[in-house]
Design a protein around this nucleic acid. Structure first.
Lengths: 106, 106
DNA sequence: GCCTATTGTGGTAATTTAGCCAAATAGCCA
DNA sequence: TGGCTATTTGGCTAAATTACCACAATAGGC
């Protein structure tokens, strides 16, 4: 795997997180696995849209799915991504301010 | 700011990282500020393309720019994002394996 | 004041993504 | 079996993203 392919792969994983609905889903899954029906209620989009968002996340290796009867339960595959959100919030909150004050944020 | 707007804003920040060239740039800036010319050499795309990638990163609040003479130097605004890449690598490396082995990875 | 080097911008074509509908699939239960 | 429910997939269109080209803008050196 070349260095370029690695960057491409990493970008694919990160891009999978770069959508409001999918962020919402990841946040929800931090509490534990949820069925598609719960996630659909949470996100509020069409069922098929939510399903496609989930397939993006699954494809990126971010979530696992487990079928139980009629329902499919999704869970976070690599929980450490949750820790990242704190840093994203730090980026959000320093837009117009001096960077020094936030260098230690995480 | 509503919850939805917050997710949208977070997604914008994350999406800004979701491109191979921009990841490469962020990685390079982890070592300290670099001028556009250096980043252009690194990425290997057209100058204008690199410039637009940088404006995406700047717009997201991820980098700072500092003009010095003819050159513009970019630097990471919130270094904690670097810590995240380890987690992304954990996602990369567990694709086909059991999730348990990676629950603690970060 | 002109010339050149370094970046940024506007325009455009090609590709990708998002969201909706309809149809297909899969598992349960009577 | 046949109907019912939960989820996925295919097809379509609109919107967003990307990369390149040509050109504008700015700063420095002469």
């Amino acid at each position: 795997m070349t260095q370029n392919e690695i960057y491409k792969h990493k970008a694919q994983i990160i891009k999978a997180m770069g959508h409001p609905s999918r962020l919402m889903i990841i946040d929800a899954l931090a509490d534990g696995e949820k069925c598609v029906c719960e996630l659909q209620q949470l996100v509020g989009s069409d069922m098929s849209t939510v399903s496609k968002h989930l397939s993006v996340l699954r494809n990126a290796g971010l979530v696992d799915d487990r079928k139980q009867g009629l329902q499919v339960f999704y869970s976070l595959r690599v929980p450490c991504i949750i820790n990242f959100f704190g840093c994203v919030e730090a980026v959000m909150n320093q837009r117009t301010q001096a960077p020094e004050a936030y260098a230690a944020a995480e």
